[in-house]
C-alpha cells in the first residue's frame, strides 16, 4: 500500500512537466529544492534535535566553490562534490565546537548563526570571491556547465535532489544510526549512560547534513545564476530551510517535503527579488512593469 502510493506519487511527479506551464514548473523546482534543503537539515535538526540556524553557510560554501571552480574550467558536476565536501568540512568544525563543548538549545543556534555570519562577512569583503557584489554565472546553456535550455531539466534535477535527500534520510531512519539520533534527541543523558557514542553520532549527522546542503548550493548557484553573500549566507535563508522542516514535521521522513509543498507556493508572490527574476522569465502572461520604487522624499522634521 505504502509502496503503491509512493510509486504513484513518483509517476505523477515524473509526468507533470509535460502538462505544466513553464511558470508552474519553476514553482515546482523551488518546491523540490527547498524540500531537499529542509530534508538535509532534518537529519541534524530534526532527527538528532540539534538545532542549526546556520545552514545557509553550507549552501553558500557549496555554491561559491562550484562557481569559482567553473571559472578555472572545472565542471560543476565535479565542483558540486568538492563544494559539498568543503561544506562538510565546515560542518565538522561547527559540529566539533558545538558538540565537544556541549552547547545545546539556543547556544548551539547562536554558534551556528555566528559561523554563517562570519562566512557572509568574509565573502562580502574578499574581492577574489566577488566581494559584496557576489558572483554571476554567464548563461551558456551547456549541460556540461550545469546549465540547460529546457526548464524541465532543472525540474528533474531538483526532483532527483529531493529524492536523494529523502532516500538518505530513509536509509538513516531504518538503521542504528537513525535510532541513535532519535534517542539522542529524546534524552541525551540516558544515551550516554547506555554507552551510545553521542558525540560521534551528532558529528556524523552534522557532516552528512552539511554535505547534502552543500550539494544544494551548487544547484542554487546554477539555477539562479547569481550568488550574493547577503542572500546565500544570510540568516533568512537558514530560517527558510528550518521553517519548512518544522511546519511539515521535523524528525519525520515526509515532513520537510510536506512543509515545502505548503510553504513554497505561498511564498512565491512575496519571494526575494532574485527568485522573482527567475519566475518572471517563465511567467505565463506578459506582466505589467513593476511599479517604480517610490521617490517620495523623506519627511524630515523642521529642526
Amino acid at each position: 500500500m505504502k509502496w503503491a502510493l509512493g510509486l504513484t506519487a513518483l509517476a505523477v511527479l515524473l509526468g507533470l512537466p509535460t502538462v505544466l506551464s513553464g511558470y508552474a514548473v519553476t514553482i515546482f523546482v523551488l518546491i523540490f529544492f527547498y524540500a531537499f534543503l529542509a530534508q538535509a537539515w532534518n537529519i541534524v535538526g530534526g532527527y538528532a534535535g540539534q538545532l542549526s540556524a546556520g545552514h545557509a553557510a553550507f549552501v553558500g560554501v557549496g555554491g561559491y566553490t562550484a562557481a569559482l571552480l567553473l571559472d578555472r574550467g572545472i565542471t560543476p558536476w565535479l565542483g558540486m562534490l568538492v563544494g559539498a565536501a568543503l561544506a562538510a568540512v565546515l560542518g565538522s568544525i561547527i559540529g566539533y565546537l558545538g558538540f565537544r563543548f556541549g552547547l545545546r538549545g539556543f547556544y548551539l543556534v547562536l554558534l551556528t548563526v555566528a559561523f554563517a555570519e562570519v562566512c557572509r562577512i568574509l565573502a562580502s569583503n574578499i574581492d577574489a570571491v566577488g566581494g559584496a557584489v557576489g558572483l554571476y554565472i554567464t548563461f551558456t546553456g551547456n549541460p556540461r556547465q550545469f546549465q540547460f535550455q529546457d526548464q524541465r531539466a532543472y525540474y528533474y534535477l531538483a526532483l532527483a535532489l529531493m529524492l536523494l535527500g529523502t532516500g538518505v534520510v530513509a536509509l538513516i531512519e531504518r538503521r542504528r544510526f537513525g535510532i541513535y539520533l532519535t534517542a539522542i534527541r529524546e534524552d541525551e543523558g540516558a544515551c550516554e549512560a547506555l554507552g551510545v557514542p553521542t558525540f560521534k553520532y551528532k558529528m556524523l549527522a552534522m557532516v552528512v547534513s552539511a554535505f547534502l546542503t552543500g550539494l544544494g548550493g551548487t544547484f542554487y548557484a546554477f539555477y539562479l545564476f547569481s550568488l550574493q553573500p547577503n542572500t546565500v549566507f544570510g540568516i533568512p535563508l537558514s530560517v527558510e530551510i528550518i521553517i519548512r522542516a518544522v511546519i511539515g514535521g521535523a524528525g519525520t521522513l515526509l515532513g520537510p517535503i510536506l512543509g515545502s509543498f505548503i510553504l513554497t507556493p505561498l511564498g512565491v508572490p512575496i519571494s526575494p527579488p532574485h527568485h522573482q527574476a527567475r519566475l518572471a522569465m517563465t511567467a505565463p502572461e506578459k506582466r505589467t512593469a513593476p511599479a517604480p520604487i517610490s521617490n517620495r522624499p523623506p519627511t524630515r522634521p523642521a529642526a
Partner: peptide, 14 residues
C-alpha cells in the same frame, strides 16, 4: 563586525 562574532564563538565555547 567580525571581532564581535569571534568573541561570540570563543565565549560560547570557553
Amino acid at each position: 563586525e567580525v571581532v564581535g562574532l569571534v568573541i561570540f564563538v570563543v565565549v560560547l565555547v570557553v
